[in-house]
Amino acid sequence: MNLSPDNIIYWHMGFFKLNATIVFTWGLMLVLVLGSKMITRKLSTELQRSRWQNLLEMIVTGINQQIEEVGLKHPQKYLGFLGTLFLFVAMASLFTIVPGYEPPTGSLSTTAALAICVFVAVPMFGIEENGVGKYLRGYMKPTIIMLPFNIISEISRTLALAVRLFGNMMSGTMILAILLTITPFIFPIIMSALGLLTGMVQAYIFSILATVYIAAATRVRSTKPENGPEEATEDKTESVSRS
């Protein structure tokens, strides 16, 4: 019983190793990229279009809309990063229905890597939008006393992001494994279905939290709190964090 797919090592040479996490990640990447490429190879700009194209358009425009609803003014700029986050986590969960598959998101290394990406991306987008000085001054608001707390908040929420996803994915796999030993029939299927739902919810939470962090970095710090959308964003952050 492995707690993490990191422990399943196929090949090892010094610092380099090829474990299940990396292999399954590659597999997911392959599926995502090849699927996209195959569908987008013959895109139609007419009113008539294939069902696969329709599906992809729905997904892409759906993500776009979500990003916009959180409060980012130019969602297409963030679509690559945030959309990939969502798609990767969602696909990782979805493939749990394949026997023998270990979700890479069930490894703390993967979730940590994703969280690190978010941790780096938030100030990057913030600085891109507002400039270095203005972004850094945001940490000293409302007073300079808040600086250490802001920094702690920044790090802790990244940690929470990583651990939340890891815990949920790992627990899903774990519960399934345990239930299989206790009640091998029917019940694991229900739990598996529940696991799919949880995985989708986690994918949504992970990406929406990243979106909210980026929105906060680009907007809330750059402008004085003036109107409703900011509070709404904060509220959303709160509600999502609680889940």
């Binding site: 610092f15 990396i22 990640t25 990447m29 890479p104 290394s109 993967t110 890597a113 994703l114 990406c117």
Partner: peptide, 14 residues
């Protein structure tokens, strides 16, 4: 629980 090589690899992969 965290394998740093895997973390780096996953960041690159991502």
């Amino acid at each position: 629980l965290i394998d740093w090589f895997t973390v780096i690899a996953q960041v690159i992969n991502f």
